[in-house]
Design a protein around this nucleic acid. Structure first.
Lengths: 338, 338
DNA sequence: GTGAAAGCGCTAACAG
DNA sequence: CTGTTAGCGCTTTCAC
């Protein structure tokens, strides 16, 4: 690996016998260059293997063509699928992506945002289970556009892309209730988080009320956030008396499904289960998990597209975008008639 | 979001009444600054909310404290776990991480590497199933250190971190053979790729030969690379007559496992299956997949650590690092006596 | 259509 | 211990 001295714009200007400005113009596609000189410049660029230095360019133009992605964890299938959508459209618009894992820790989220500001990113996509006040403050003062992907701002002030969590939860809970279950349990993440309490639980609650059921906290479980902790919580949901279960996360859902089956339950005969993220987990499980269908890739893609607009100072027609969700009937629910 | 004009090093120098150089010194922890002036500078920095501009710093110092990660796909659990290891030690050493997905396409890999060079990254971690000649050339001419993570360089010229694929494959094949299977099938990725043919298949082959079996290509399957394609290949492996199966990828393994069970096979009574990556898939499946144990997080972490050394111009004690693997006996193999 | 010149915000000798 | 002086490599007015 020889540290070759890269050619600079100066070198090509010299070689052709024009000024830096002219070279810069052809590199940036400025039309005010005579065709013949453009040719010569291009030839010299090719010959010298000249590659513009993006750092110098960033300093001079105050645009780095780099965006930051702040996410809980790359190894989480839900977030990694969003990230794939982000990355693909970022590349489409010639942006590079700086990724930071935060493990949902507000302190690290704030650090990540500030660090990204330091690196002069042109914009940020934020993903996280909760918009902590400190994070909100960091976002407001970061100086570049930020859009939320698969993450909710209860105040509705920030650009965001999500599905309608209330409606989705309402729908699957209703379906279970329609099937005659006396008790439908709900498994959520941290109940302090708005997305769980104000959105998901709200949808669940409304479905219960519409069906004339009382909301009983005995059927609310909020301590499971991955496969292992799902296994810990599963015995309690099994013993709760519930026969229908709606779950906010696929890893948690497959944990509960496996536990129930390992302990003799027949699915969906004894329990019906619906999960929420439609990741690969819901397909590889046996039986396959019925799920809310979320356009995860699109959520990321649309969020990134919105960010490009914001970075180009073009107004958003919609601040909080809601993408349509579906219900994917697989094998942990009984066949529906309708 | 008010685009606040950030304070520059010049502003704080002015406020305190010292030169840029002094401010730069305290920011960079240079000790040659009187304690009292350091205090004053720090106070001014705090008051102005000064944050060094990393782009300007990068241009002046020729170090961006940013590295690039070139990977097939973030949504692949194997690679995302490596990436998590990379990211954690990168942060530890104050590097940011630019991530690019390539879908294992050499053309995109080359583009990614060149683009990263343009962005003046200080180093690159490369992950991919195959080191294409074009990619190799790009790596050699990129001008910054590159280390391979979970990716093999048959020529042994590039720094890399892997497990011993030959030994691992030899081990699991041998175990199956020891259990008395007449025919052990092997499911690999693209056979044109060295990692499959020269490493994994070589280990499989050696095990067969040591056990006095002939190598028969009827038991070699190379068309499965994800869950869906695994389902496509599964009927053939079921009909092949093999009763032991070694698989190079967990998503593929769970696909085959599910297919076999869905078609009446008892696992591990009728078939024993061993997979290779020990991702979450091997834990959530029923029965749980026995697997080679790979220190995935560590492969990424060690690769990144090596990269930091290279970037600091400190020599590597070992070019091609081999991390230990294990065998994790779960439920798709019969209990072993030893 | 092209060039000259002034930075972008910072680091890094080099003096003193 | 501190200041001066050059740049880093490029974009961007502003003239011509």
């Amino acid at each position: 690996m020889i540290k070759k001295q890269n050619a600079t714009i100066y070198d090509v200007a010299n070689k052709v016998g024009v000024s830096l400005a002219t070279v810069s113009r052809v590199v940036n596609g400025n039309t005010n260059v005579r065709a013949s000189t453009k040719e010569k410049v291009l030839a010299a660029i090719d010959e010298l293997g000249y590659q513009p230095n993006a750092v110098a360019r960033g300093l001079a133009s105050k645009k780095t063509t780099t965006i930051g992605v702040v996410m809980p964890d790359v190894t989480n299938l839900y977030y990694s699928e969003l990230t794939r959508g982000i990355d693909d459209v970022a590349n489409m618009y010639h942006y590079d992506v700086l990724v930071t894992n935060t493990d949902d820790d507000p302190v690290r989220e704030v650090m990540a945002i500030n660090n990204l500001a330091t690196k002069q990113v042109d914009g940020i996509i934020f993903m996280g289970n909760e918009l902590d006040q400190r994070v909100l403050k960091a976002i407001e003062s970061v100086g570049v556009p930020v859009v939320l992907a698969g993450s909710v701002d209860p105040a509705g002030q920030l650009p965001s892309v999500n599905i309608d969590y209330v409606a989705a939860m309402h729908q699957i809970t209703s379906q279970l209730l329609d099937n005659g279950h006396e008790h439908v349990a709900v498994v959520l993440g941290d109940f302090e988080h708005a997305i769980n309490q104000e959105y998901r639980f709200a949808g669940y609650k409304r479905a219960l009320e519409e069906h004339g059921h009382e909301v009983n906290r005995d059927y609310l479980f909020t301590k499971a956030h991955n496969y292992q902790t799902a296994l810990d919580v599963a015995p309690d949901v099994m013993k709760s008396g519930a026969t229908g279960i709606v779950v906010y996360d696929d890893e948690v859902a497959i944990g509960i499904l496996n536990y129930l089956q390992d302990h003799g339950a027949k699915i969906p005969a004894d329990f019906e289960i619906v999960t929420s993220n439609d990741t690969n987990y819901s397909i590889v499980s046996r039986p396959q998990l019925s799920s809310i269908g979320q356009p995860k890739y699109d959520i990321g893609a649309v969020a990134m597209r919105m960010l490009t607009k914001l970075m180009d100072n073009i107004a958003l027609t919609e601040l909080a975008v809601t993408l349509p969700h579906t219900f994917i009937e697989r094998q942990t629910t009984r066949k529906r008639q309708d």
